[in-house]
């Protein structure tokens, strides 16, 4: 699992407000290609908002975000291009319930990438096999379990051959038996060298795959370090408190 020197994402002095509420304050973050970053922190700390800014699901008001060498601007074509390079998985999966699993996976390649249908279906089956649910291809999302739906959501993102994957609490809506199957998929993805940013509270996952763990509180990056150091030897008091609370039971 090597990290290249090439830079995938640069965020400089980024600020965001929801109305008058200052959600993200002076965020500076550089992500190298192949790097796997876990972001944790209490709820309301701005973790989700941060990664949603990276593919412009949220608009930031100050600072710059550069993804794959393209600076995010309000130009729609620019945004759509970055979004097609950056895959995203949501807490609530957000599969399209009116389409079959296969159609969910082929929709964006066909319409955005203009891939021929047959080729898109082959790619989709390839990734569905990878997340170990090729036999569900013709079912509808409503017929699948939560864990299966989340794995489909991962496959759906992968079908666009993204260079970066964002995960927004992918296991928070799942029960314990299903969390593992989703995490296994994500670990496999990490081992292939995908650049990943995960907002998650799965600390075991963070220890196992992350190159860097970022702790956020009140809209700021409070601490970032390699997982070993982060968990065993946290520097700030806020981090210590947070870790003692989530690892304490």
């Amino acid at each position: 699992m090597k990290v290249s020197d090439e830079i995938a994402i640069t965020i400089t002095k980024m600020n965001k407000w929801f109305g008058t509420f200052h959600v993200l304050r002076d965020i500076d973050l550089t992500v190298n290609r192949g790097e796997r970053i876990v972001i944790c922190g209490p709820s309301g700390s701005g973790k989700s908002t941060l990664i949603r800014c990276i593919n412009a699901l949220e608009e930031h008001q100050q600072g710059t975000i550069e993804v794959d060498g393209t600076v995010l601007s309000s130009d729609l074509k620019n945004i759509d291009r970055i979004r097609s390079e950056v895959g995203m998985c949501f807490q609530h999966f957000n599969l399209f319930p009116h389409l079959t699993i296969l159609e969910n996976c082929t929709l964006a390649p066909i319409w955005v990438r203009k891939t021929p249908k047959k080729e898109a279906e082959e790619t989709a089956m390839h990734f569905l096999e990878k997340v170990k649910i090729p036999d569900q291809a013709n079912k509808y999302p409503g017929q699948l379990s939560g864990g299966q739906q989340q794995r489909v959501a991962i496959a759906r993102s992968l079908c666009m051959r993204p260079r970066i994957m964002l995960f927004d609490e992918p296991t928070s809506a799942l029960d314990p038996e299903m969390i593992k199957e989703v995490l296994d998929t994500m670990i496999e993805l990490a081992q292939e060298g995908m650049t990943m940013i995960c907002v998650t509270h799965e600390m075991g996952f963070a220890r196992q795959v992350a190159n860097r763990v970022i702790f956020m509180d009140a809209g700021q990056i409070v601490e970032q370090n390699e997982p070993e150091e982060f968990f065993n030897n946290p520097k700030s008091d806020r981090t210590k408190l947070f870790l003692s609370q989530i690892l304490g039971h």
């Binding site: 593919n55 979004r83 957000n94 319409w111």
Partner: peptide, 17 residues
């Protein structure tokens, strides 16, 4: 749900699509 709009956006679909 808002998630449907976001999922469509995050895949790079433009507004008409």
């Amino acid at each position: 749900p808002r998630g449907q709009y976001e999922a469509a956006d995050s895949l790079g679909l433009d507004y008409p699509q």
